[in-house]
Amino acid sequence: MLVSVGSLSLMGLALGSMLGAASRYLAVEENPLEAEIQAMLPGSQCGQCGYVGCAQAAAALAKGEAQVTLCPPGGKATAEALAAKLGIKVDLSAVVDSGPQIADVTEEICIGCSRCLKVCPTDAIIGAAKQVHNVIREACTGCSSCVNVCPTEALSLMPIPVTLQHWVWPQPASSAS
């Protein structure tokens, strides 16, 4: 009895100290999480999260200082991926996900002030002063920076229409467990 109690305690002690030593001596210096998180963010440096850019937001996320729901352009999908990466459970049902969106210029209202050109993080708006501007759909990230500077509200975010090429099958209705 005593022998078995003693041997078990000894084993526990030995293994525990090994783990402790390992965590001290084999510790990873740099936080690799930060780079991984940064790769998951859109990378448009739009600043809507309140940080200067995606790298800073990633650093804050890695330190646990920021919410996973911080990135509006990333939407629900990014929030889910971040939560999974960081191993936290977040109730995302409250996050309104309007789906991916892109900016759209209402040509009748655009006055060609070219303010939007200067703020677009991906150079997705083309046009010149006194000319109607246009959004390059493939380059727009839907960050809404341009919407905020437009003096005439000619810019708005529109959901990306689902096309035959982009449609995907929904999950089966009867996913019996």
């Binding site: 990378g43 993080p121 991906t122 150079d123 990230t141």
Partner: peptide, 8 residues
């Protein structure tokens, strides 16, 4: 997007 942002 990243490429575009970097290009910008």
């Amino acid at each position: 997007t990243k490429r575009l942002a970097e290009a910008r």
